[in-house]
Structures are given as C-alpha cells and as structure tokens.
Design a protein around this nucleic acid. Structure first.
Ligand SMILES: NC(=O)c1ccc[n+]([C@@H]2O[C@H](COP(=O)([O-])OP(=O)(O)OC[C@H]3O[C@@H](n4cnc5c(N)ncnc54)[C@H](O)[C@@H]3O)[C@@H](O)[C@H]2O)c1
Ligand SMILES: NC(=O)c1ccc[n+]([C@@H]2O[C@H](COP(=O)([O-])OP(=O)(O)OC[C@H]3O[C@@H](n4cnc5c(N)ncnc54)[C@H](O)[C@@H]3O)[C@@H](O)[C@H]2O)c1
Lengths: 215, 215
DNA sequence: ACGACTTTGTGAACGTGTGCACTAGCGGGG
DNA sequence: CCCCGCTAGTGCACACGTTCACAAAGTCGT
C-alpha cells in the first residue's frame, strides 16, 4: 500500500458528502470556481477545515483563485466511489422498508433499490414502487446476480442481528441499520446506524439542560 | 452555575440513550444489577468508557457489585429529560412525514406526534394515523397550546431553512432535520440531522477503499 | 515585468475523546 | 472480624480532531 500516509480521517470522510452536495449546487449555478471560504459557508463548517479536508484528496486548488468546481466534484466523486451505481437491498418490507423503496432520492443519488426482502410469506411476491419483494432464501442469489454491495436493515430490532448476519453471509459488507438495536459486525465490514428515537432523546437532553427552559 | 465541572461531554450524551435501551432490556429480564462489563457488551462499547460515562451522572454504582438497574434507569431518564413526554411537530406531510406519523415507536418512547404541518392547502385538514394536518400559520398557536418543544423537518431541501426559521419563530428550539440541506440555527437552539444519502455515500467510500474489493 | 492582492496548503498549538492500568471500596465467606 | 475477590471510579498518556496563523504560490492589473 503506497499511500498509507494519505489515509483519510473518519471525520473528514463524513464531511465529504456535504461538500459534494455543495459543489453540485454550485455547478447548477454555473459557478466555475469556489473558495474554501464560500464552500465552508455552504457546508456549515469553518474554512480551515475545508482546506485540510480537501488536502487529503490531493492539491486540487489554485492559490489566489480557489477550487475548480467541476474538477473537484469529479475527484471527490471518484474518491467516494460514486462513479458507478451501488445497488442496495432493503431487509424488511414493512412501513419503513416500503417508504424507502418509494423514495426516489436514493436512485437519483446512485443507490438504486434492487430488491426488498421479507420473511413474511404474505409479502413475498408483492411489489412496491416497482421493487419486488423476495424471500430471505433468495438473498445470496440476488446479491450475486445484481451486484448488491449495501444492505439496509428495516426489520424489527429483535431480528436485526440475525438479518445482519444473513447480509454478511451473502457477501454484503456495508450495512445501514435503522432498527433500534446494537448489532456487531466483523472488522472488515462497515456499519452505520440511523436511530430516530436516539436523536430525539439527545435533543431532549439539551432541551432539559437549556439555560432558559423555554417551555 | 454551580456544577460547571460536571458538564457532560457531547460524546457521552450521544451514548446515554444506548445505555438506556440496554437498561430497559435488563429490567425486562428481571436483572437487578449490572456490571460495567455487561453493559459495555450490550451497548457495543468498552467497559472503561461505560464507567467514565456513568460517572458524569454521579456515583451510582457499588464497587464489587455493579449498578442497580432500576435506580440507574431512573437517574438516566431524569438526566435525559425523559420523565415527561415531549410532543413533536412534523413539518411536511409528504411521504416521509406520513410514514413518521404512522410510526408508533415515537409515542412509545415519549415523543407523541402532536401535529403535522404542511404548506399545501390540499393536505391541510386531512389526518394521518389520527394526526391532524395544519397550515403553517397555525404553528405558533399549536406550539403554545400543545407545549411542543421539538420540530422535525420533512419538507423538500429547498424549504428546509425557511421551515427551521418558522420553528424557531414559534419558540421551538430543538430541531431534527431529514432534508438533505445544511441549515443554520442560533447557538441557543439544538440541531441534529439524519441524512440517508449521506450515510450511503459514507458506506460507498469504505466499500471503495476496502482491502479486498468483494464485488 | 513586477508588485499588490488573494487564497491555498500546512505546521503547530490546543481541545476533546479514548482506553489502560491502578486504586478505592464494598460484599461475602471463612 | 478480617481477608479475599470483585468491580466502580479515575489519573494519565495517547490518539484524534479542530483551529489558528502564516508562508508559499498563484492571479491580475498596470
Ligand atoms: N416506520 C418508521 O417510520 C420507523 C422510524 C424509525 C425506526 N423504525 C424502525 O425500523 C424498523 C422497521 O420498522 P417498520 O415500521 O417498518 O416495522 P414493520 O413491522 O412495519 O416492518 C417490519 C418488517 O420486517 C419483516 N421482518 C421481520 N423479521 C424479518 C426477518 N428476520 N427477515 C426479513 N424480514 C423480516 C416483517 O415481516 C415486516 O414486514 C423497526 O426496527 C423500527 O423500530 C421505523
Ligand atoms: N421519503 C423518504 O423515504 C425520505 C428518505 C430520506 C430523506 N427524505 C427527505 O425528506 C424530505 C421529505 O421527503 P418526502 O419524500 O416526504 O417529500 P414529499 O415531497 O413527499 O413531501 C414534502 C411535503 O412538504 C410539504 N412542504 C413543502 N414546502 C413546505 C413548507 N414550506 N412548509 C411546510 N410544508 C411544506 C409539501 O407540501 C409536501 O407535502 C425531503 O427533503 C427528502 O429528501 C425522504
């Protein structure tokens, strides 16, 4: 591994998509270059952080001018692996699973929903927004055939770990978990979680400890 | 401010809800005490971190024994401000707003959906899962009457900042944003965001940089 | 061709978070 | 009653992340 030194910090990786979105806006507005200052304002961070973050990608800026919007957008897409689509599978065709399948925003951003999976025989065979519901047993075949690399867990919390294990079994090593449960994966896999109740509880904490308890 | 020293670090606050969930499970299983080791395993963190985190709440453990599950659960609920309900308002009665209103998990955890708000006159007056859709103009009155302290933004990204401003105007200082847009709030307000596309892009990055590019 | 101006890229200081390893202290058994 | 085993609480070193401040390096106007 030649460029071990240029390993990108986790905190930076988490901000890259925000810069990406800002750059896409700028491209829409036909801006050809952008300064770290401007980009910082759009991304809601400070300018030094933008420069340091971008420097991990390489020296793509021009001193005295700024960054070329289109070129930086390309380089960043490449780094994020967004030059091609990543089909995803949604585990659990309930309330949330259906809502996600209905949502066009994923396909639009390069994450087409290739399949829904459910354990309930009544749901298998149905379709939501053109996405077919399959039985769990078909997961390995589907993953292989459709080149699915990302799994989204939208089952009840009690099934979450088992479902994660099935995903890993099928060779899917990137997992986004919506169930309010702690799940563990081997170190070579990536796991991110979205937990709405947890977010609300954090807001509750700061509300509770606010200097002026508004209401 | 007497106990400035016992200010709880942000990272710790973000973990408290996870401990809380673990404690609730233990209570279900009729466990009366728990060690930091066990709690750490359930929460997916290391034991020293659990002990340090809990020490910010006070010295609620007993050396040689562990923590009393019920007592710790109570103290933590108190600290998180979960001893009473926090009614929430959902801004935007579209796909996502409706799905969230339908979801029982919020009410169950003490965050009842008090109202939906939409700018579209066709939606105003409708009901989803028993939740009434109101016009934006009614927000201040509703906030006041129902004691709403938390707002959830589920509108298109283009409206997000304007909607956030309306929430703040109505005295709501805790905001959870689902729209893929950077919004800014004054320092006395709290803002958290949930951005699914961003999470997928982060997964894409690590997939792209995986030692063995599985597929 | 040059100097004034702009903006990047980065070294260094600082702050926050993590985890080890040890001490303090409780309970239970002999 | 005392000692042994266990586990909470915490000081400390280290890793990671953020921010400042400045030199380096480019542009643009004259
Ligand atoms: N609905 C929401 O708005 C919302 C919001 C936040 C979090 N969540 C969380 O998302 C998860 C799903 O929520 P939901 O409202 O869609 O629940 P749901 O009960 O409507 O759907 C769950 C689906 O998963 C399927 N399922 C169960 N076990 C399975 C297994 N082992 N393999 C495959 N499929 C299985 C069920 O058949 C069902 O169709 C829950 O953990 C919930 O807490 C939901
Ligand atoms: N649907 C999903 O699964 C999903 C997933 C992730 C993120 N999101 C994000 O959540 C947001 C909402 O998504 P959606 O699918 O529900 O969109 P949607 O178009 O179905 O709903 C948006 C709703 O907001 C209302 N609205 C527009 N401007 C408003 C304003 N100023 N004040 C109040 N209401 C207003 C519209 O009338 C509409 O009812 C989007 O930003 C989207 O990117 C949605």
């Amino acid at each position: 591994m030649p460029d071990r030194a240029r390993r990108i910090p986790e905190a930076t990786v988490a901000r890259l998509p925000v810069y990406l979105r800002s750059l896409a806006e700028l491209l829409d507005e036909k801006e050809s270059t952008v300064s770290s200052e401007r980009l910082a304002e759009m991304a809601g961070v400070n300018a030094a952080k933008v420069r340091k973050d971008l420097s991990y990608l390489g020296s793509y800026g021009t001193r005295g001018v700024g960054y070329d919007v289109e070129y930086l957008l390309f380089q960043m897409s490449r780094e994020l692996g967004l030059t091609h689509d990543w089909p995803v599978v949604i585990m659990g065709a309930g309330n949330l699973g259906q809502a996600l399948a209905n949502y066009g925003g994923f396909t639009e951003r390069g994450f087409p929903v290739a399949a829904l999976i459910d354990a309930d025989p009544d749901k298998v065979g149905r379709q939501y927004h053109g996405v077919q519901v399959h039985h769990v047993d078909e997961l390995p075949r589907l993953a292989e055939e459709k080149g699915i690399a990302i799994g989204i867990i939208a089952t009840p919390a009690s099934a979450a770990q088992a479902v994660a294990d099935q995903l890993l079994e099928a060779g899917i090593r990137s997992i986004l978990n919506f169930a309010p449960a702690v799940i563990t994966v081997p170190p070579e896999a990536s796991l991110r979680k979205v937990d709405l109740a947890l977010e609300l509880q954090i807001l509750s904490f700061y509300q509770q400890h606010a200097p002026d308890p508004a209401r």
